[in-house]
Design a protein around this nucleic acid. Sequence first.
RNA 1: GCCUCUGUAGCUCAGCUGGUAGAGCAGCGCUCUCGUAAAUAAACGGGCAAAGCGCAGGUCGCCGGUUCGAAUCCGGCCAGAGGCUCCA
Length: 637
Amino acid sequence: MAEKIKLSFKDNSECEFPKGVKAEEVVKQRFGKKAGMALAVVINKRVVDLSAPINESGEFDILTFEDEAGMDLFRHSSSHLMALAVKRLYPNAKFAIGPSIEDGFYYDFDNLSISDKDLKKIEAEIKKIIHEKLPFIRREISKQEALKLFKNEPYKLELINDLPASERITTYKLGAFEDLCRGPHVPHSGVIGAVKLLKVAGAYWRGDSTKKMLTRIYGTSFPDKKMLSEYLTRLEEAKKRDHRKLGQEMDLFSFHDEARGFPFWHPKGMILWDEIINYWKEVHRKYGYGEVRTPIILNKDLWLRSGHWEHYKENMYFTTIDDVEHAVKPMNCPGGILIYKSRLHSYKEFPLKLAELGLVHRHELSGVLHGLARVRSFTQDDAHVYCLPDQLEQEIINIIDLVYELYGAFGLKDYRIELSTKPDKHIGSEEDWRRAEEALEKALKKKNAKYDINPGEGAFYGPKIDFHIRDSIGRSWQCGTIQVDFAMPERFDLTYEGRDGRKHRPVMIHRAILGSIERFVGILLEHYAGKLPLWLNPVQVKLLPIADRHAEYARRVAEKMKSRGIRVEVDERSESTSKKVRDAQLEKVNYILVVGDKEEEAGTVNVRTRDNEVKGPRKVEEFIDELLKEIKEKRIK
RNA sequence: GCCUCUGUAGCUCAGCUGGUAGAGCAGCGCUCUCGUAAAUAAACGGGCAAAGCGCAGGUCGCCGGUUCGAAUCCGGCCAGAGGCUCCA
């Protein structure tokens, strides 16, 4: 009779089924109530469709949208729904690819000319498809059949041709749209509860800027409307903490048509800037760094020698001085190296750490500029560490410690670490690369750091560790970087005198911790949603006299605070106290001090915070001491 | 650089398919000198509230075209937003 297979479930129970039983059947029998949420099943750790027959014994589980993998599948199926909608509305569109991404999905189309306004129409069509409850039908075909099936879809043909001839190819059919797809998918279109198309964008075919630009539609989907609207509300909230908006509201910096991509810093912005820098310098002295400063303009010969003339010219700005061509520095290393070469070095000085807050200029493509996060002139918190080969690992560890300390002081915990290894195009010996990659990885392991490896993504001159921090809407920006550099010591013939009295080549580490001060300020503003901790806030305290007759007392208190280094303002406007409190809170001032008759008489201030925590009356002197203590502790609030 | 969208007073925005610029907030002036919060998805209704009156501001991003006439339509440029590529 029929062969049996044995399936085990999460609760450790086991059950026998006839071979070839539909996964759907098993789910119905074993998961009861929860079965309605099943999107796909997991058999022996492989995800397959609900409709698939089960032919092997093993572990069995279901995938719901509560799992990350389930949500992924859900979004991927959503992109097929969108593709079907586009096929119905725009029969001439050509189809490229449509994967799930974090928080949503997209599909790339060619021969589709649409704008934001058309999204509504497509969305309506998707809703129809959801109501139609169309099944996803899986087929397995040969490469020959696939080439025939997709003969009118050039992008699909390109994908199929890249597959080995022997490979069985799967397709999924949803209504009139059959797509080349590995799957699996949800059982039918009705499972997709709520879809929202978010934006139209251009995207190069296969991410290659030499290839054709396709039309990409981004969307997101959720099991129900409530989850979708919650997500959209979160997005709106996140936009409010955009550093470009906060920068304007808080009067920190601005941008002007007269200098695209070059930020202008306002007085309050400079206070924030200086606080960051001062702390940075303090920590760097502690870690044994010396600080240097090199010129912004250096002549052509230097850039020829460094290789920038050859590899980086399109990103550089140029000028001529006394008929000699010069370039504005896009990086600090060549200048720093000249300092190294200004005298002989001994192995005894190593590790030699030279830091520079270097103002660099890079001609970035106009389309990539983004507030403070991507500008054309920025200040790198750069440093170059020259060391012996066997000091490399320890020096990398020291830099990682420095990263942890600095990020920690700014309350940043959520960052991603990436290790990028040897690219195809590279200089330096295999042995050097192996040693450097090993040192970087060992250092990360010793620090118990979580990291991802980016194979082949290193710089041509050496492997690197990068630290990426997310902004308010989830975009990831590279901040810290630790790069082992083989190119510069060679090109500039850097040497040191070893124990043996002979000249050797030092190892050079190029590193930045904050990355650029500009980008970092942007990250910080978004991280704190503008509510900067006391030590960083340009305005720490606001004094609110209740009536005009209290202004004099308020000014006296303010002077006392100023003389102790506290940044304080008095709001003497003839407005109601409630309005002044509200304004001060919107300005994100840490402490709001109300003073009236009672306070003046008692020599106190009535303290409340921007988060509306009322602390009540405090003696002026005592409160100043409290403030100074909080500033000194750099307490994260 | 490429794709899509946007560009109206310092800020936030209104201005329907072309007929000749507005609101709120902020600013300034005068009068008043009350007062130790209010609000928090939206819409509507109600209550409370130290505010009131007045002034100033923009050839509607720039240039050109269509038209009797353009903020409104078309084209080019500039800038911004979201993506792609790139990157600190």
